[in-house]
Design a protein around this nucleic acid. Sequence first.
DNA 1: TTCCTATTTTTGTGATCACATTAGCGCCAT
DNA 2: ATGGCGCTAATGTGATCACAAAAATAGGAA
Lengths: 222, 222
Amino acid sequence: MIPQTPIHQPPKVGDTATSAHDRVYRTLRTQIMHGEFRPGQSMTLRGIGKTFGVSMTPAREAVRRLVAEGGLSLSSSGRVATPELSSERIEELASLRALLEPELASRALPRAHLALIDRLQAINATIAECAAKHDDVGYIRTNLEFHRTLYLRAQAPAMLALTETVWLQLGPTMRALYARLNRTEVPHNHRLIVSALRAGDEPSLRLALRSDVTQGLRLLVV
Amino acid sequence: MIPQTPIHQPPKVGDTATSAHDRVYRTLRTQIMHGEFRPGQSMTLRGIGKTFGVSMTPAREAVRRLVAEGGLSLSSSGRVATPELSSERIEELASLRALLEPELASRALPRAHLALIDRLQAINATIAECAAKHDDVGYIRTNLEFHRTLYLRAQAPAMLALTETVWLQLGPTMRALYARLNRTEVPHNHRLIVSALRAGDEPSLRLALRSDVTQGLRLLVV
DNA sequence: TTCCTATTTTTGTGATCACATTAGCGCCAT
DNA sequence: ATGGCGCTAATGTGATCACAAAAATAGGAA
């Protein structure tokens, strides 16, 4: 009977255009993909909840989703951490990038108009800035933005989603890689990609993509 | 203060070697992938919970995971249903299969010993049985078993996982397809795959896979 | 009969709690 | 000093509840 506890909903004065778990999910996903976590970094549901000002429930759902996509891995006891990839796994994920991304680029090629190519060139300039400032996270973020901008033109959402899943899995490892090799300028292959787009040269485009995707990861497999 | 409600845990007399949400997840995933649901079929969290004898919480986590993999889609209001794919989406997923599966087969080829090939031939016999009995779900299940058995030899878990994600997305649609075209025997391409494996002929193997993967779906895109 | 509206029911979301398990850590004996 | 042991705190899991939004249903007016 007791008609108690009518209110335990927080004020929620702000707007939540989207649900809480989705906000947590998207933020964590971006952070992982951009390499803001080290490989093997562990986190707790209550900790995530406190960080985002929510209870365990949305934190749990966001984590489950990320685990399903391979962005987080969970131990036998349910503890969650950022994945530490074996050499074989890195090689395999690099192969997947080499398989998927040239295909996406090929599909984008006939739809790539001049404004897009100019935009890609501008992103390359930003990449150069990040490299000069040794901003690893910025470098990764802008580099992925370059690829995503191109692939969005492919009109292949499922293929792009799968590719982003691969990026997500590689996120923490990518950070460890770029911190090691200390780039100082925009990768040469990005220039080749832009050139091939301008020329409408599909074979060159595919080759440049494959090289760009493979080169960095190759250093990690030692 | 009231020290009430010390026990609301169900007897749990059975063994749960794994967690509840994982059991729900795996069962639903298999059902979706094998085409046991029609495209657009909706379900509720409470309904799923009642079906599996659990509360909403594990049902929600299982559903979230499946949504993340594309096996279920959720409407703007959070309602969950099996996805209804557009022609473009089906075509795209078929392209993904055509991209990934020949690669997996190529990687499996050097590792494919005789016992494996014999096993594939046995699975083909089972497929023929299902076709004769017009057992659509059995047909899909056995067909996927054929492919998975081959790909397991590729030693490429991430690539296989991505491929299974594609299968999952196609599950309900696949059912609708096979119910329509009423097969009566094992697909010819499966025989070609076995032959190419025996001969160690990689180009033929890739071609046979691409054909096998593409042929059925092509009919759906009308 | 048909269409619009109001009410009732259903459903997803997030918070909280009890419980089991595990990891972390100190403590004592050797 | 070190290694094993037990205890405490922390953590994941699942159930339950309150609430808001949406869907379904019923009822009345044209």
